[in-house]
């Protein structure tokens, strides 16, 4: 219910971003890639951004989610939906979780 939804605080959002980073790291390790491998596939000059995101201090830009998904062997729609759940949980709920009117 809308009245019960609370605005995400900075702490909440940072924790969610850390959770997203952990999920991304797990996916990368499952794909058998190092941070440098992934950055090479993504065409990044340095792997430092991969680390930044995995540590929860950055987000995968929506424009490159498809590239990340393919690099990690995850269907792009599933990848984007999962990350949206971390980055914008309210929007994710509206889009993907059915609620009674």
């Amino acid at each position: 219910m809308i009245g019960q939804q609370r605005t995400k605080t900075t702490t909440d959002m940072r924790q969610l971003r850390k959770d997203a980073g952990k999920w991304l790291k797990d996916q990368r390790l499952m794909a058998g890639l190092s941070q440098m491998d992934l950055s090479n596939i993504l065409g990044l000059k340095y792997y430092t951004f991969i680390s930044q995101v995995e540590n929860g201090f950055g987000r995968v830009p929506s424009g490159s989610m498809g590239k990340w998904a393919r690099a990690l062997g995850i269907p792009p729609a599933l990848f984007a939906r999962t990350l949206l759940g971390y980055y914008d949980p309210d929007l994710h709920r509206l889009l993907f979780e059915e609620e009674p009117l």
């Binding site: 909440d12 940072r14 340095y46 430092t48 930044q52 201090f57 950055g58 987000r59």
Partner: peptide, 10 residues
């Protein structure tokens, strides 16, 4: 919280 990291120095 939407912006979070402004810059990262490595």
């Amino acid at each position: 919280p939407r912006e979070d990291c402004i810059s990262c120095v490595s």
